[in-house]
Each structure stands twice: as structure tokens, then as C-alpha cells.
Simulated assay, not measured.
Amino acid sequence: MDSTIPNHTTPQLPQAASAIQKDVPLKEILSATSIGYLARNIELVFPNFDKDSFSTQATTGLDELTLMQRADHIATALRAHLPTSYQDAIDILVASFTPELTQSSDNGLAVFFYLPHSAFIAKYGVKASGEETDPFDLSMAAQYQLTKRFTAEFSIRSFLLHDPNRALATIQTWLSDPDEHVRRLCSEGTRPRLPWGKRLPDFGKTPDKVLFILEALKDDPSLYVRRSVANHLGDIAKDQPDWVLEICRNWGEEANKERRWLIRHAIRYLDKKNYPGANELRRQMK
């Protein structure tokens, strides 16, 4: 698979469809074209970047890989061509980012361009290699920036698994962030059963550990954030249904219409499974 490296003068995203298209595999978002854009974006902030060698490695064997495998494959090529110092490498990647998103919808599939960046952070930024300094905080800061362009909900799970207390302490500082993408990450990134993401079984079995996140965001002004809270509760409900029902009953007292919607959405799985009390609570929240 050959890549064509463009010559834009500021970091850019390649064009992509606005939604998944029939008969077009999602993995094609990470193609030779996107690799060319990635190479050029990095070259703009790191002129010594060997874009041709990187592109050759990143595109070799790409056809047979799934979307997430492609992201990991490209991340491996990035590690081979960026400075050996993780701090220098992550500084370059962050400097190559495009401007922050200004909305939570209608961004299309173009932002999946950043999936290799997410994979790079998760793969190389959790713990120090050799005599390097601890990269944990650098990586959390990079994910803070990444989620303003795409999402860090996949990468942050490696940090929650490695050192949950430390990761949660950082997440707590993001709960009142003015950017809704950052606030959503606090909930979405800690979901126990996030699709495509690593499982966080401890948060499903002992959800009190993340209750402070859900409490802080349950009345968030952004539907984008509140929907994540509802889905998060839906994940927990598969392990701790009674815990979720109790939380939702407490939240349902004098709830406004936005919170009632959240509760209905959160327990729809339990209602579908005819779990005792779920249907009655959903009807009360209409």
C-alpha cells in the first residue's frame, strides 16, 4: 500500500465520510492517505522526521489488519521514527494536532485519524522504559489535549488499569472543565464495558470508586456528557443491577426532565431483561 504525502502548510485532517458507509470497512479510515497526512503533520513541527521511511513502515502489511490493529501498527511505526525520548516524542505528536473541536456532533469519521495517536500513548506512555522519567503525567496531559480533537476513552483505560488511584485523581480535576469533550472523557473513559475498549471490571464490581464522577456529571449542561453517564450506568447494571437502581431512585427524587431521561436511558437494559423494579422506575421517570 503506497502513501502519498501531501504538502499542506498547517496540520490537517484527511477528508472522510460523515458516517459509516455501506460496503466500506471502517478500517479504511486508517489508510495510506491518512498515513500521508500524519507524516506531513509531524514534519511540520519536526522537520527531521523521516516521513518516507515512516510511511513505508506504516503502510506495509496494512491491508490485512482491522481498524484497531492498524492503529497499533501505525503507533509502532511512529515509535520507530520519533525521538527515543518519550517526552520529546509526545511533545511532537501534541504539537502536530489540528485545532480543537468546536462541537460534539457532525464531526464525521475524520477524527478517527487520531486513533494511532491514542494507541501510541497507551502503548508507550504508561510506564517508564529504561532510565526515562515516569511518563504517566505527560501522557495524561496529552490525553487531555487529544480528547479535544477525538477522544482518549480508549487510551486512558491503560492508565486506569495500571494505576487507578493516580488516574482517577487526575480525572477528578477535569470534572469541571469548560470543554464538554473533557468532561465526557471522565465518564466515558471509566465505563466498565466500553465498546472496542479494554474492560475495567473493577469499576463494574465496585462502582462506588467512580460514583463521584457520575454524581458530578449527572446534571451536566451537555447532552453529550449526560448520555455518557447514562451509558456508564448501563454498563454497571450488567454487574450491579441493584446498585444502579438504588442510585437512579435517589436521583429520581424531584428530577427535572433531563435527569429523568438519563435515568430511563440508564436502566433500559434492566427493563428489557425484566429485572424487578426497572420497568416501574422507567414509567415513573416519564
Rank of each mutant, 00 (worst) to 15 (best):
E100K: 13
L146R: 13
L281I: 11
E131N: 14
S34E: 00
Y269C: 00
Y37R: 06
A80F: 05
K123G: 09
T60Q: 09
S85A: 08
D202R: 02
Q15N: 14
S139F: 07
Y269T: 15
L168S: 07
A89H: 08
G36F: 00
L101P: 11
R259G: 06
K273N: 11
I156F: 01
I20C: 03
Q21N: 08
M68S: 12
Q12I: 00
I267G: 07
L194Y: 07
I213K: 03
D91E: 13
A75Q: 05
T102I: 11
A110Y: 11
D242S: 08
I121T: 15
T33K: 08
R282P: 00
V244T: 05
K209R: 15
N256F: 02
A119E: 11
H8E: 10
A230C: 06
L175C: 07
Y269R: 11
F212S: 02
F136E: 12
R149K: 15
Q172E: 13
A17Y: 10
R260F: 00
T66A: 09
C248R: 02
W251I: 05
H117K: 05
A32V: 00
P135Y: 08
S96C: 12
P192G: 06
P11S: 06
Q240M: 07
D23A: 07
D220Y: 10
P276W: 04
W243M: 03
R40Q: 14
L168K: 12
G125W: 10
Y124W: 14
N48K: 13
P6E: 02
E254C: 01
V210W: 03
G125R: 14
D219K: 13
I29A: 03
I5P: 03
R191I: 03
L245E: 06
K123E: 12
A32R: 00
K272V: 04
Y275L: 08
T10N: 04
S176N: 12
E153I: 03
N107W: 06
E132Q: 14
D219W: 00
Q103R: 12
A80L: 13
R226T: 15
K238I: 04
A216V: 01
N231E: 03
V225A: 07
L270N: 03
C186V: 08
W174G: 03
